[in-house]
């Protein structure tokens, strides 16, 4: 119930690269390879926009990304973004900020054209083309029509 905050700055290049990896850990590519991971699909741009409007979340994410990097270097001797997918998945799972990112990752992911196509949809917004639907089968109403009035007179 507060007014929208002043937009915060975007992420740096390294932070952005790490964010893409985190998003791929939250939604990895599908096992059949038909759906990309969230980072690959481009969800980071949406998430980064969200972070610009939510400074508290941005702070949490930036600190979390820094911690991830430190942990990665300590455990694996390289930056988080350079770790393998299984290594990154384990690291992200231990980070509370990942949970805070989940809804934004989902929203960012399922609006990507490549994801829509993988789901069997066209990669376009609903308007202005819309969707074609079949004619109504109003014969289904026969048993309802056969009933007497159901409202009360008064």
């Amino acid at each position: 119930m507060t007014a929208a905050a002043t937009p915060a700055a975007g992420l740096g290049a390294e932070e952005r690269r790490a964010l893409v990896c985190v998003l791929d850990a939250l939604i990895p590519p599908s096992p059949d390879g038909r759906r990309p991971g969230a980072g690959q699909a481009g969800a980071a741009a949406y998430v980064e926009n969200v972070l610009r409007t939510l400074p508290d979340l941005r702070t949490m994410v930036v600190e979390g990304l820094r911690e991830l990097d430190e942990q990665a270097r300590g455990l694996h001797g390289r930056a988080f973004a350079s770790c393998s997918e299984p290594e990154r998945a384990v690291l992200v799972a231990a980070q509370p900020f990942g949970y805070a990112l989940v809804p934004h990752a989902y929203i960012g992911y399922y609006q990507q054209g490549s994801v829509l196509e993988a789901l069997g949809l066209e990669a376009r917004p609903p308007h202005p083309q819309g969707h074609v639907m079949t004619e109504n089968d109003l014969s289904l109403l026969a048993p309802v029509r056969a009933r007497s009035k159901r409202y009360r007179d008064c």
Binding site: A25, L26, I27, P28, S30, P31, R35, A89, V92, A93, G98, V102, P103, A105, Y106, I107, Y109, Y110, Q111, V115, L116, L119, L121
Partner: peptide, 23 residues
């Protein structure tokens, strides 16, 4: 629901994990 709303509905209902098993 559209894809985003489906994912958020599942998340709210505790049926939409992240990571392995998401798809």
């Amino acid at each position: 629901f559209g894809p985003v709303s489906t994912a958020m509905l599942g998340l709210t209902a505790g049926r939409m994990p992240h990571g392995e098993g998401h798809h």
